[in-house]
């Protein structure tokens, strides 16, 4: 990934094209298909729902609903980028929320509890990473086990109706607004932009992409593959734990089913946004943001028109299949 010799770059660079061709070409890439999907979603919204689809209050609803999945998804995207997939994020969001909610309700200091929750996220991430990196186990299967384990723990902890909690500063963050924009959404976009900067502009980002793209080559180039993957998996878990804390702020409580299936929506959105579960090294957080906006837009259209919410999973599944198919035509790995 790092180009050492300057002559080599010219050898592999595409010939310089006129500006309009370059713009056209960029639309053939991931960004183009995501933008097209998003535009279609918005058009459907405009036609079906009418102009009220673009009313400030509706945009605010979508913004608030997309913010926490965005934060969780952006952190999880580091694992995807490094070539390991973490299916346990949905359960981790739920488990983090349950721990946070229960301990705060038990009377502990909210900051301390938040710290504990994040530490739990680190421990879960390290456990995943230990089995995946140390033993070379299949990430999907390991994190599927962790998904079940954490869901089970949440159900062990919360048996009856969970207590409700109100934490002032957290409430202000999750429900407040700065200059008309939901604070949470601003934080989410901030996290996305920082992550996008890390991925495309920094050494660390390039290392992560290199490990995900071709781990042997990365190892030969002197990058510690295990270290990158451990950090990526921990980031993914911690992001989910933070997402859990934010959900407690938003919902005022945490049931034992919170976050079920969230991983499907997030990964579907990320794959629509140009990431790949089967190979690392591709994708950009901005694409992830656009993908999540597509899913959130569909959810919103279904909600506003009072359509059976089950259609969401159906449509997401269809778009997901279309997205991986398009990715394959674009040069993604084909199966056999």
């Amino acid at each position: 990934m790092t180009t050492t010799a300057t002559p080599a770059t010219t050898l592999f660079d595409d010939p310089v094209l006129p500006a309009h061709r370059r713009i056209l070409n960029s639309f053939r890439g991931p960004v183009g298909s995501i933008t097209a999907t998003l535009v279609v979603t918005l058009l459907v919204g405009l036609i079906w729902v009418g102009p009220s689809f673009f009313s400030p209050s509706n945009i605010q609803i979508v913004g608030v609903s997309v913010a926490i999945p965005l934060i969780v998804g952006v952190m999880a995207s580091f694992a995807l980028l490094a070539g390991v997939v973490d299916l346990s994020i949905g359960s981790m969001v739920g488990f983090g929320a349950v721990i946070f909610n229960q301990l705060v309700a038990a009377g502990l200091n909210a900051w301390l509890v938040a710290l504990i929750t994040v530490v739990v996220g680190v421990v879960v991430g390290l456990t995943n990473a230990f089995v995946i990196v140390r033993f070379g186990a299949e990430p999907l299967a390991v994190t599927l086990g962790m998904l079940t384990l954490l869901r089970g723990l949440s159900q062990v902890i919360v048996v009856n109706a969970p207590p409700s909690t109100l934490i002032e500063p957290l409430y202000n963050v999750t429900q407040g607004a700065i200059a008309g924009f939901p604070t949470l959404l601003l934080i989410g976009i901030g996290v996305t932009l920082i992550a996008a900067g890390i991925v495309s502009k920094t050494r660390i980002g390039r290392k992560v992409q290199a490990v995900g793209g071709d781990d042997r080559a990365a190892a030969r180039a002197g990058i510690s593959v295990s270290k990158v993957r451990v950090i990526a998996l921990v980031a993914s878990s911690v992001g989910a734990a933070v997402g859990g804390i934010l959900y407690v702020g938003q919902l005022g409580s945490a049931s034992n089913v919170l976050g079920t299936g969230l991983e499907f929506q997030i990964y579907a959105a990320l794959m629509i946004g140009g990431y790949s579960i089967t190979r690392g090294g591709v994708g950009n957080p901005i694409g992830g943001l656009l993908g999540l906006l597509v899913v959130a837009g569909i959810t919103n259209i279904l909600n506003v028109t009072f359509t059976d919410p089950n259609y969401l999973d159906l449509i997401t599944a269809a778009i997901l299949l279309a997205a991986v198919l398009v990715d394959r035509f674009r040069g993604g790995d084909s199966f056999e």
């Binding site: 999907l140 299936g261 499907f264 990964y267 579907a268 794959m271 579960i277 089967t278 089950n310 259609y311 969401l312 999973d313 159906l314 997401t316 599944a317 269809a318 997901l320 299949l321 991986v324 198919l325 394959r328 790995d333 084909s334 199966f335 056999e336």
Partner: peptide, 18 residues
């Protein structure tokens, strides 16, 4: 589609349930 079975069945699993 020459697609990875895990992704395909993840999608058909959720879609089918829906």
């Amino acid at each position: 589609g020459k697609l990875n079975p895990i992704i395909v069945t993840l999608a058909t699993g959720f879609g089918g349930l829906a």
